[in-house]
Design a protein around this nucleic acid. Structure first.
Length: 129
RNA sequence: GCAUAAGCCCGAACCAUCGCCCCCACAGUACUGUGGGGGAGGAAAGUCCGGACAGCAUAGGGCAACCCACCGGUGAAUAGCCGGCCCCCCAUUCGCCUAAGGCGAAUGGGAGAGAGAAAGUGCCACAGAAAAUAACCGUCCCCACAGUAUUGUGGGGGUAAGGGUGAAAAUGUGAGGUAAGAGCUCACGUUCUGUAUUGGUAACAAGACAGAAGGGUAAACCUUGGGUGCUGUAAUGCCAUGUAUAGGAGUCUUUGAGAGCGGCUCGUUCGAUUUCCGCCUCAGGCGGAAGGAUUCCAGGGUAGGCAGCAAGAUCCCAACAGUAAUGUUGGGACCAGAUAAAUGAUGGUGUAGGAACAGAAUCCGGCUUAUGAGGCUUAUGUUUUA
């Protein structure tokens, strides 16, 4: 597994899991990013963290803008994800995370990068407690 | 050179690092690594038309509903495209009349839901007497009364030449005619209908003869002619996983139905095995019912995989046919295929100084709309030079 990659296997894919993460999962927000997550003790899978990103089509009508934001979120996640992976594998858990963009304006990459880092740190704290 | 209008082309490039999706080869065979190749648009958009493909439906005919509407060609097909016709608008040039200006012809450009208003119904703001069986003013005739009278008042009737209103007012000009007028008549025109002729595949054009003078609106209803099964790739087909039974069929229920494993006429392991009624008979057997077990079918739900799915009305080049759209032939190319959904981020070089509109989702052909900078073509105007 590449350290800074974001392979197909790491993506949060299943429709039911997404349903579950929105209805029963916990959430917190580091504006403009809202983080949904759900912890599981089940072992066996080779990937400790499944992650997905999203934008509401309400605020961004054009597909180009939505794609842009999703790309920025993915880029930030793949560069900052390492610490989360270490913590989760150390506790032999699996976790599903979803990052939702909340703002109505197109973001800057550096902002997304900083906020993603903050969000992941907060998530690690929540897992440890 | 500049401006305006119309149309077309293009839709930044390169380097480094970290990443994403698909395919191929090798190592490996669970999954990963290495190397190589490919990876959004001219509109991918709107979903407005037309097809391909798929499923369902389907004797034949009519009505309704919806769509189309000058002619010919093109194409799989259309409301597309190409060429032509008609009509309207603009510009230029020429000719005629001329006070501004108007009329005609030619050329160029642009626009047109361009069948029927002479089958019928309806509607036509404001203004105006009246918006379609025209009489307000004016004008003319007759009668009555007043008056000397050419006049006035009232009543009856004729008249569309003139006035005013309006986007539009009942065929234009001249002459005859008349009480005054009027296509009432005539001449030259205008428009329409019919008939045949000539040219053209046709729309149509030209002149001839006969008839007519009906305002607009069909994007109000309508009439005529032509066309149309419905639903869309979340279509549809297949595979595996696997849970309940309320449906149907078979088998079994006191000696073994069935299931698993093993190359399998067999062996071995597991295995529900209950209750009631009738008869024979009293060990038990036979028949029926309920319940149960099990197999198959049916059908509901859940979450997956594969096909559909990318080599095609494909793209590029050349030749030939055609005014053109387009077609034929030859040569060459393989060019996204995801499924929460890939083509990105950062830094640098560098343009116009940080690049518009914008992201495939079954696939094609069109249409429409959005679009920064630049370039090209055509037309017109203007300026400079020769």
């Amino acid at each position: 597994m590449k350290a800074f990659g974001y392979h197909k296997k790491e993506k949060l894919k299943s429709r039911t899991e997404l349903q579950a993460i929105f209805t029963t999962g916990k959430s917190f927000s580091v504006f403009p990013i809202k983080v949904f997550f759900i912890e599981k003790d089940t072992m066996g899978t080779s990937v400790p963290v499944h992650a997905g990103v999203g934008v509401g089509s309400k605020h961004f009508k054009k597909a180009v803008d939505r794609n842009r934001i999703k790309r920025l979120l993915r880029e930030a996640y793949r560069l900052e994800k390492q610490s989360l992976h270490e913590v989760v594998s150390a506790q032999s858990k699996t976790i599903s995370v979803f990052f939702l963009y909340l703002d109505k304006e197109l973001p800057d990459y550096t902002l997304i990068r900083v906020k993603m880092k903050e969000g992941l740190e907060k998530l690690i704290k929540k897992i440890n407690t």
